[in-house]
Design a protein around this nucleic acid. Sequence first.
DNA 1: TTTCAATTTGTAATAAATACAATTTAATAA
DNA 2: TTATTAAATTGTATTTATTACAAATTGAAA
Lengths: 137, 137
Amino acid sequence: MKSVQDIVTEIQDAGLKVTPQRVAVIQALYKLNHPRAEEIYKEVSQNIPGLSPTTVYNVLDALVEKDIIKRVKTEKGVMRYDAVPDHHHHMYCITTDRVEDFFDPELDNLLQNYFEKKQLKGFKLEDIKLQLMGKFE
Amino acid sequence: MKSVQDIVTEIQDAGLKVTPQRVAVIQALYKLNHPRAEEIYKEVSQNIPGLSPTTVYNVLDALVEKDIIKRVKTEKGVMRYDAVPDHHHHMYCITTDRVEDFFDPELDNLLQNYFEKKQLKGFKLEDIKLQLMGKFE
DNA sequence: TTTCAATTTGTAATAAATACAATTTAATAA
DNA sequence: TTATTAAATTGTATTTATTACAAATTGAAA
């Protein structure tokens, strides 16, 4: 979780204007777990009445563009978002749509070493993301 | 690439009726590269005039359900499909929407060993998929 | 405090996917 | 081979997610 000040600084550093909508969207992303745009809209609307759904999409696009947040790949035709931009992986529940972050520097090392030896011809590898599929207990 | 006979057998074994639409959708999946439903519709329509878009969605759902094909996770709010149901990973192009299959049994072993030692508390791991992000050259 | 580009809003449009009733068809058994 | 029937396809209408865009508002620099 980030303080409001951290969020403000983050937005400023990206060269974006600090608006209540942007701050609130980022806060909602921390509160909710990998939410869809519509869930964010509902959440943020409580603090910012009159909020437009379009704004949520605009804000999300701008924040993704600046690497302040990330999109989460899913098997549903709905986009979801992740407050954490730092390198990490995801655990996906097979039965529900729950998604959790997964940090593992040791594994990242292992993979990096593996792919340094193993050359992928015709593909310049820049990032590796794991999808851990399973069930939460 | 699978022969028509292989495709027919595959559909039968799954307990589904063999229809021209289903066979053609699977063939289109091999011809196209991780296509969206709409691309499949266009392709298959050439062979099956009067094809309904709804049918494409129905067929895709049924085939995914029976593990004959797979959905591909993307960062766009559009579903894409994969003709290959066997365990494999994906290479994603950062700049375009190109996706390629990636098979690597050695890596699969490495990962399996790693996660046998490393217990994930609260999560029963069933499958690991890598997303290799980068650029095709 | 003014200025202005950036941002938000609101409405409308588009795109992707789904619901569902009517029609057709694949596969089984007579 | 034909009759039967559950499964599959079709066509239309909706829903849901997202985007387009012009007008109004606002954050931040001068």
